[in-house]
Simulated scan of single mutants.
Amino acid sequence: MPKVSKEQIAAAKRMTAIEFLRRYRPGALEKSSARGEYQLVAHDSFKINGESSVWHWKSRNIGGRYALNYLIYVENVSFVEAVQMLCGESPSYIPVEHEQIEKKRLPFKLPPKAADNSRVTRYLLGRGVSLPVIQYCLDLKILYESAGYHNCVFLGLDEQGVPQYAALRGVYDYGKTFKIEQEGSDKRCGFCIPPAGGSHTVAVFEAAIDAMAEMTLCGGKADKYRLSLGGISATEKEPLALQEFLRRHPEVTTIELRLDNDSRGRMASECIQKVYAKRYNLLDLPPEIVNGDYADMAKNKLMARIAAERAAVCR
């Protein structure tokens, strides 16, 4: 097994992550909504400060400042290879593309299931999602409760109906909502609520809970496909989940863009419209709440109903 010296390790630790990315991955970075901050095009939950070089991959709860840690924890490069790369002894490795990184993705494995889905059901009801919508997703086996931490597990299926993607969302409030994609998830297989019958329309959301919330606001009607992109990049013109969905469903003619009503959601909507406008009937339908999403709308409607019921009791 090749080894590296203490001097090489010390030299490798001198390069910051932002310096490495600007020099060797210029196409991988884009500006984020925060001033002086950047994000990875392929992983928009990865943020890095342009001055301090401090980076944090929120969905995986890892971070650092130097290129060495970035290569090890983000691009899955071995310690020795990363040191050699940064010392200039392995220059052929520098132009690694995202496709090559994907080849190193760990095998996809679903979290074990809990004995029942009671906690997930209570959580989603508290977020304003109706019981019929929750049950619809449970019956389709695209939603379940994990054992241990009792997270919501939203599944994305391949063409054979086999799960290839999972988005986990915590049901407990510790001041910050737990949200992560299961290791090895295939972004092409997004969480999708299918219609009860055929449909020529797909509504596109940033998160699975938004899709369930909008279905609730529509009275629980299973009248169209509701697809979650699993997050967005403001400049991503053709999200992988949408590309794959449209490939599988040539009968679809209308795309409802129901992305968040914030700067990133609006920019993403504009980018997607530019790509698909000539091929599809596009409807830009953001939620009514500024800087909000459909889950916020459903929660607000629930709170308003509870307040009205309490007021009626007090009369």
Rank of each mutant, 00 (worst) to 15 (best):
M303L: 15
G197I: 12
V83Q: 12
S185R: 11
F205P: 03
A295I: 06
N151Y: 13
L29K: 03
T201G: 10
R105F: 03
S199K: 01
D139Y: 07
E81C: 07
S146R: 07
K58P: 04
K224A: 06
S130H: 04
E30Q: 14
A147L: 07
S53D: 07
G64D: 01
R169V: 09
Q243M: 09
V74C: 10
A82F: 08
T16S: 14
C218F: 12
A304K: 15
K47D: 03
Y174K: 14
L282I: 11
A114I: 10
G161S: 02
E251P: 04
E19D: 12
I232L: 12
E145N: 06
H249M: 07
C189S: 11
E244D: 07
I272F: 00
E309G: 02
S32A: 14
D210N: 07
A114M: 02
S52N: 05
Y174V: 13
L155F: 08
V74K: 07
Y136D: 09
K237T: 13
S53Q: 08
V204N: 05
N151L: 09
C192E: 08
L302P: 11
K47C: 08
G231Q: 03
L71T: 05
M15Y: 06
S228M: 00
G27A: 04
D296N: 08
E238D: 06
